[in-house]
Design a protein around this nucleic acid. Structure first.
Length: 741
DNA sequence: GCGAATGTTTTTTTT
DNA sequence: AAACATTCGC
């Protein structure tokens, strides 16, 4: 390949983004404007023009998928396998760096990377001295607080008292410190530490920093709008230098920033010019993906956001006319799923590929309704990003066995599997083990040996534990002599783990055995068990072999970066989308992020986008009315076509106060249902409401179960009451009695 | 220590 | 309604 040929068939902006190699550059790449192409071509261009060797370019992505894709496309461009590159996710690259310098943060190079389960087990141990009420302060929440500090680059000593805002009665910072100490004792890292530690090293060890300054001549960053503070700090440390300009190129789209809940700061991209003086900005605005109508609708929507860097997508294709975005109003959530399936069936009859159809939902729970209906219609589908391979219990168990095999002092893994399958080790025995481990200053495995010696276990557990320990010892020898595949196979078999699933009668047991086989098969791709475990810890997604013709069902977040001919966007209702929780927690900023999510959703579509909303939705067991999403009003009329009933703002109010009548649950034609139901509005529910005493805020009340309390807030059925004994709870107002006093 | 029975909560989004 | 956790009886 010649130096120039890869630059052909690029538009002028893309070309500029590739050829501007020196100095800081921000490429604002709107949806569908060829972002990945620019990134990969730029990488190849730097190589082919001889400006840097492969290992002198740092290329960072957020997902493993993006990293894989980039690697493949670079190989194609340069005509050889792209190996030995610093190309990967933030976490994978940081892990690689941290292995080299672990000792500067009190770790050894072989440190463990913990998964979420391990983290939970660990904080559970750590909080003991504080006697935290885990009912009131759930552990995942505590881990969340710690994670957010880590996202912001705050080591325990950097957390100010003001930051410790109340979680776990204001002990969060102290717990954080203890947790970090415990991690060091275990020679372990959680996910956040990979970033946090390396940033700490780079900011305190100029010599190490300089090493990387010498190494990396060019830095490429994908999805810059999603970087959190530590990631930003890491990039800034690596990019800013005294001796040379910062050859950092960040590609991103402020309109697609949808990960603030994970600590991402849109400000990072908005501030780029200040961070890197002399930065150039190139806008990619020509969209080669979607029709003019889809782009118009998306642009109209996103225009409602403030504080954008400003960018307008223009159709880049000549044939970009097409159908307007459809807004379909439907009676209820069952009808919504049915309607989507009907339309998919129609598309299928017209020879559309199912692979090119997606249903994009706001939150995971929405997928279930579609799943059921798709099955009923006999439409092949796949749920993308549901429970991932490495998150399944059997996979985690098997991995824990492997971890103990390579590392006898991996207590977190050991604790996971001592009693799986059942070996008579319950909470009491486990406590004994911990106590023994503490006094012997050893790992749990050694504690087991000690207690076995002293005969602390009763008959069956004594026997089973002895056998378990022997099995481990034996397969450690096998591991050395015959390699990891044989050893793992034997271990899972002899420990009784495989047998446990074989004798399990539950319907998903065969599937689990299949997964285990798959896992063992994957071992063959790695030279050692250690390598395999490292890969698994960092690459939590397994490559789906699915290139079959199926409809994709996934969350809007999961759909980022993908595109489909036809996209269904159900559930555009207030409370669902925009999500009530985001609104409550994030206010106007939250709303803007939801709007960006809507923008991401619409721009996934090449030819057709169909938005749906239902007037009534089943939540838990009962039905709840819902108003059309405000985003529907924000879509410009000239690009949309509204069908079904009641999609306009004037009629919105009409929704409040009518209930779904069960008489019409199934047989009705969905688009007609609202009309009929409105006429037949049954008085039953109204009776219920009028019979319920309206209790005002501030009233003193009595509840059979919770005792006396004061009403804090009241809406239709649910009332929030601060009880004297039972704390603040939401209860049904019909169960309350007002009392004087 | 285990399984059944009872009570409680659930709906973001993920490297 | 269903999954989940905790309690209870053996």
């Amino acid at each position: 390949m010649t130096t120039q040929s890869h630059l052909e068939r690029l538009n002028p902006e893309q070309r500029a983004a590739i050829e501007t190699t020196e100095g800081p550059l921000l490429v604002l790449a709107g949806a569908g404007t060829g972002k990945t192409r620019v990134l990969t071509t730029r990488f190849a261009h730097i190589l082919l023009s001889g400006k840097a060797k492969p290992w002198q370019i740092l290329a960072v992505t957020f997902t493993n998928k993006a990293a894989r894709e980039m690697r493949e496309r670079i190989s194609l461009l340069i005509g050889e396998p792209a190996e030995g590159l610093w190309l990967g996710t933030f976490h994978a690259l940081c892990a690689r760096m941290l292995r080299r310098h672990a000792e500067y943060v009190g770790l050894r190079s072989g440190f463990l990377i913990l998964d979420t389960d391990d983290q939970l087990r660990l904080v559970k141990q750590v909080i003991e001295p504080w006697r935290i009420d885990v009912k009131r302060w759930p552990l995942p929440g505590l881990l969340g607080v710690i994670q957010r500090w880590k996202d912001r680059g705050l080591t325990p000593d950097r957390v100010t008292a003001a930051e410790d805002n109340g979680y776990a009665d204001g002990h969060a910072q102290a717990i954080y410190a203890a947790y970090q100490t415990r991690l060091r004792e275990l020679n372990a890292c959680d996910f956040g530490d990979l970033m946090l530690h390396i940033v700490e090293i780079l900011r305190t060890r100029p010599d190490v920093l300089e090493q990387y300054h010498r190494l990396f001549r060019y830095i490429l960053v994908d999805e810059y709008q999603d970087t959190n503070t530590v990631q930003y700090l890491w990039l800034r440390l690596l990019a800013r230098r005294n001796d040379a300009p910062s050859n950092i190129c960040c590609v991103g789209d402020d309109d697609q920033s949808i990960y603030s809940w994970r600590g991402a700061e849109v400000e990072n991209i908005l501030r780029f010019e200040k961070d890197f003086p002399g930065a150039k900005i190139i806008r990619l605005e020509r969209n080669y993906r979607s029709t003019a109508q889809i782009l118009g609708a998306a642009a109209g929507l996103i225009a409602h956001n403030d504080g954008r860097l400003g960018k307008t997508l223009r159709p880049g294709r000549e044939d970009a006319e097409g159908e307007p975005v459809q807004i379909v109003s439907i009676w209820d959530s069952d009808a919504e799923a049915r309607e989507v399936c009907k339309r998919i069936e129609a598309l299928r009859r017209d020879d559309h590929t199912l692979r090119e159809i997606a249903i994009l939902v706001r939150a995971g729970f929405q997928t279930r309704a579609f799943e059921e209906r798709l099955v009923q219609f006999g439409i092949p589908y796949r749920i993308v990003g549901g429970l991932r391979f490495y998150e399944r219990a059997e996979i985690r168990d098997a991995l824990a066995y492997m971890r103990v095999l390579v590392n006898p002092v991996d207590d977190l893994a050991f604790e996971r599997i001592v009693n799986v399958p059942k070996r008579g080790v319950g909470t009491a025995a486990l406590q004994k083990l911990h106590a023994e481990a503490r006094t012997a200053r050893s790992g749990l495995a050694v504690a087991v040996e000690n207690l076995l010696q002293s005969g602390a276990f009763r008959g069956k557990s004594q026997e089973k534990l002895t056998s378990l320990m022997q099995t481990f010892a034996q397969h450690r020898r096998v591991l050395e002599r015959e390699g990891h595949i044989v050893a793992v196979n034997g271990l899972l078999e002899d420990s009784g783990y495989i047998e446990m699933w074989r004798t399990d009668n539950s319907p998903d047991a065969p599937g689990r055995l299949e997964n285990l086989k798959e896992l063992v098969r994957a071992l063959a791709d790695f030279g050692t068990l250690g390598e395999f475990l490292e890969h698994v810890a960092l690459v939590m997604d397994a490559e789906g072999a699915a290139e079959e013709d199926r409809v994709s069902v996934m969350t809007l977040h999961g759909a980022k970066g993908l595109e489909f001919d036809t996209v269904f966007l159900p559930g555009w209702e207030e409370g669902v989308f925009p999500s009530q929780r985001t609104l409550d927690e994030g206010g106007d900023k939250g709303l803007e992020e939801e709007r960006r999510l809507a923008y991401v959703g619409i721009t996934r579509a090449r030819h057709r986008a169909i938005i749906l909303h239902a007037a009534s939705r089943r939540i838990y067991a009962n039905w709840q009315e819902s108003m059309p999403s405000r985003f529907l009003d924000e879509l410009p009329d000239e690009y949309v076509e509204r069908e079904g009933e009641t999609a306009t703002r004037r009629e919105r109010q009409d929704y409040s106060g009518f209930f779904r009548s069960s008489v019409f649950s199934d047989s009705q034609n969905s688009t007609m249902a609202p009309l009929i139901a409105r006429k037949r509005r049954t008085p039953v529910h109204e009776d219920l409401i009028s019979n319920t005493p309206q209790i005002g805020v501030g009233a003193r009340v009595f509840h059979q179960k919770f005792g006396y309390g004061v009403v804090i807030s009241a809406d239709h059925g649910a009332t929030e009451v601060a009880f004297e004994e039972a704390g603040t709870r939401r209860v049904m107002s019909s169960y309350l009695q007002t009392v004087s006093g």
